[in-house]
């Protein structure tokens, strides 16, 4: 892996290696919880918490773990932080915990987290892993927010629960249902590909 600067470690998660728009990872929470801004935000922050702490732990004990049992160890570490996030939400933000339902415990199987451990934290220093995890989490959070903004505005006429479209607007209920998630994500992915193509041809 070529040596990179810290800012490159951070910004690659935002666009070039954006987990949702470029790598198509973590599709389950991306599609499932983006029906409202508050849910997208909570899921993004919970994933950030898990990813950053898991990367921190994995990169600091990477030399101690024999490669044969690394996946099992990573999963135990990730599952620990996921459970912490789940209990924390249930204790301090019960309405959000209720909205997200099983999707908080399901962060365990979010590919983004295991992929970052396998592809980055297990090979790089603690500080680089931390920066990488922060960048990736921010990229994921932004993707969730963009998707949930589109779905909430069109599907409920609201933004973070506040009415933004007038009473003339008949909400497109399909946008807050699963098909709306696929439609919105599909259009965004198409756009992302188009932008990438343009910027490549310019280079």
């Amino acid at each position: 892996m070529p040596a990179r600067t810290a800012s490159e470690d951070f910004t690659k998660g935002l666009w070039k290696e954006n987990p949702v728009f470029r790598h198509l990872l973590g599709m389950c929470p991306t599609l499932a919880v983006t029906n409202a801004m508050i849910n997208g935000l909570a899921m993004g922050l919970a994933t950030t918490f898990v990813l950053v702490l898991s990367s921190l732990v994995v990169s600091s004990i990477k030399k101690l773990i024999p490669s044969q049992v690394r996946i099992a160890s990573y999963i135990v570490i990730i599952a620990t932080f996921v459970t912490v996030a789940d209990r924390f939400l249930a204790a301090f933000f019960p309405p959000i915990s209720k909205n997200l339902g099983p999707y908080v415990p399901l962060i365990v199987v979010n590919c983004i987290i295991l992929e970052r451990q396998e592809a980055f934290s297990s090979k790089n220093t603690i500080s680089r892993s931390l920066i990488d995890a922060l960048g990736m989490s921010l990229g994921f959070l932004i993707a969730l927010l963009v998707l949930s903004a589109i779905r909430e505005i069109l599907g409920s006429g609201t933004f973070f629960g506040q009415q933004v479209l007038g009473t003339w607007f008949e909400p497109w209920i399909i946008m807050v249902l699963p098909p709306g998630a696929f439609i919105a994500l599909g259009i965004l992915l198409g756009l992302a590909n188009k932008i990438e193509e343009k910027s490549k041809s310019r280079r």
Binding site: L64, I65, P66, Q68, V69, A72, S73, V76, I77
Partner: peptide, 8 residues
Amino acid sequence: MAVVLTTV
């Protein structure tokens, strides 16, 4: 392997 997994 056993020691690491048990400790974790």
